[in-house]
């Protein structure tokens, strides 16, 4: 079994990671780098619970061979926790009770962050579409959508202030 060594910048830190053949980025982030906010809901691109940013773009870690991310910048929720811009989104999720079991929540937050970077004032429909790849089986979509609406308002309010 050949092992390759990848160079990744994960949450701001350069890191070298040995990986086996066709290891997924999901496995590398969770098992090697212990970034457990990256959840494994389906491992086949169906649930969004492993949503991360690769070079700033929303991607699914389960569908990404780790080797295809060689040389890339990867951001997980742990990395976003360090930035101020995520705090209003987290606060809004808390205030809107937008999590129940919490398993989809990290993916929801990363997808929300990606949406608001691209579109700071999304319509309700745009929010629904932007989160359409992130499943919540506790069926808490309404508070989640409301949380994103409130977060967008809070963030854009801050920007205009």
């Amino acid at each position: 079994m050949t092992t390759k060594v990848l160079r990744l910048n994960v949450n701001g830190e350069d890191t070298l990671v040995p990986v086996g053949p066709m290891a997924t980025l999901q496995e590398v982030l969770r098992d090697k780098l212990e970034l457990t906010s990256v959840k494994v809901g389906c491992a086949q691109g169906g649930c969004g619970s492993c949503s991360v940013l690769i070079d700033g773009e929303l991607r699914l870690a389960c569908l990404t061979p780790a080797e295809a991310a060689d040389g890339c910048t990867v951001t997980t929720l742990e990395g976003l926790n360090e930035s101020n811009s995520i705090v209003p989104i987290q606060q809004s999720f808390i205030e809107n009770y937008a999590a129940q079991c919490g398993f989809c929540t990290p993916g929801m937050l990363v997808a929300t962050k990606a949406l608001l970077e691209r579109n700071p004032k999304p319509s309700r429909d745009e929010i629904i579409e932007a989160l359409s790849g992130n499943l919540c089986r506790c069926t808490g979509y309404l508070p989640i959508i409301k949380a994103v609406e409130d977060a967008a308002a809070a963030l854009s309010g801050k920007q205009s202030a």
Binding site: G45, G48, S51, L60, G133
Partner: peptide
Amino acid sequence: VGGPALQNA
């Protein structure tokens, strides 16, 4: 084609 994360790939 899927959701936004999938469309990015």
